[in-house]
C-alpha cells in the first residue's frame, strides 16, 4: 500500500511517501517560507525522487487539525485537488495523534501540545499502545495551567509526562517549573509533527477502510472563528 502523507498544520511543511510500514522518503521544512509556496513543489519533488505518479498511490493521508487555520486549509485543499483528479481516497489523521506518535514505545503519559496563540494551546493526552497512540480525552484548547492540571490528573503512580509539540517551545519554562522531575521532553527531531508518522498511522486506517468523503471533509479547528464566537455570545 503506497500512501502520500501531507502535514501543514503547524509552521512545518511536511510530506512523505510510505509503503506499508516503510518510509520511502520524507521532507520536513521548518523554515520561514510559506506553505503555499513550499508544499506542492515538495510533493512534486518527493514523488519524482521515488519515480511515483499520483496514479501509483493507493491513498493520500492528511493531518486535519487542530493547528493553524490557514495551514490546515492549504494542506487540505492541495490534497483534495490531487485526490479528486487522481480518483484516490483520503485518510484523515488528527494532528495531535500524529504528534503523539513521535513518543511511540513510551510507558509515560504523552501530552501533544500545539501553540493556539491567545495564550492557549491545543492539546491531547495519550497513552502509547502497540498499534499507536490512544487518546485519553477529546482534543481540547486551553491555557498552560489547564494542561498542567490535566497532566497531573492523568498521570498514573510512578508515571512521568512527556510533552511535545510547538506548544511546549512556547511555554517550556512554565511546564518545567510546574512539573519539574515529572516532566520529560523529546529530542528536537521528535518535537514537531512528522508526515512520515502520519503516513504510518494512515496505513492501518486505510487497511480498515477508514476513508473520508472528499466532498464533506473539513479541518478540525476546535475553535470557532472570532466572528462566530461573537455571534454566539450575542455581540453581533
Amino acid at each position: 500500500m503506497l500512501i502520500l502523507a501531507v502535514d501543514s498544520s503547524t509552521p512545518v511543511a511536511g510530506a512523505a511517501l510510505v509503503e506499508d510500514h516503510r518510509v520511502l522518503i520524507e521532507s520536513f521544512i521548518n523554515y520561514k517560507k510559506t506553505h503555499s509556496e513550499t508544499l506542492l513543489p515538495t510533493i512534486d519533488r518527493i514523488m519524482k525522487e521515488c519515480d511515483c505518479s499520483p496514479a501509483d498511490l493507493d491513498a493520500l493521508a492528511l493531518t486535519v487539525g487542530p493547528g493553524s487555520f490557514t495551514g490546515l486549509r492549504i494542506g487540505m485543499a492541495t490534497v483534495k485537488g490531487i485526490a479528486m483528479a487522481a480518483h484516490k481516497p483520503i485518510v484523515a489523521l488528527s494532528t495531535l495523534d500524529t504528534l503523539a506518535a513521535n513518543a511511540a514505545g513510551s510507558d509515560d503519559l504523552v501530552g501533544a501540545l500545539l501553540d493556539a496563540r491567545k495564550n492557549e494551546l491545543y492539546y491531547g493526552f495519550y497513552s502509547m499502545r502497540e498499534q499507536g497512540p490512544e487518546a485519553l480525552q477529546e482534543a481540547m484548547v486551553g491555557t498552560p495551567q489547564a494542561v498542567v492540571s490535566q497532566a497531573r490528573e492523568l498521570m498514573a503512580q510512578g508515571q512521568r509526562v512527556i510533552l511535545l509539540g510547538d506548544g511546549y517551545y512556547r511555554y517550556g519554562a512554565y511546564f518545567q517549573q510546574e512539573l519539574q522531575e515529572q516532566l520529560k521532553v523529546m529530542p528536537g527531531h521528535l518535537m514537531l509533527p512528522r508526515a512520515a508518522a502520519a503516513g504510518i498511522l494512515a496505513v492501518d486506517k486505510a487497511g480498515q477502510g477508514e476513508f473520508e468523503d472528499l466532498y464533506r471533509l473539513g479541518p478540525v479547528y476546535i475553535r470557532l472563528s472570532e466572528a462566530e464566537y461573537r455571534l454566539k455570545k450575542g455581540e453581533i
Binding site: 506542492l40 499520483p54 485543499a77 490534497v79 485537488g81 479528486m84
Partner: peptide, 19 residues
C-alpha cells in the same frame, strides 16, 4: 482575501499537478 484565495489556489495546484 488571502485565506480565501489560498483555498482555491492550493486546490488548483493539486488538481493541475495531479492531471
Amino acid at each position: 482575501l488571502v485565506g480565501a484565495l489560498l483555498v482555491g489556489l492550493s486546490f488548483a495546484k493539486g488538481l493541475a499537478w495531479s492531471l
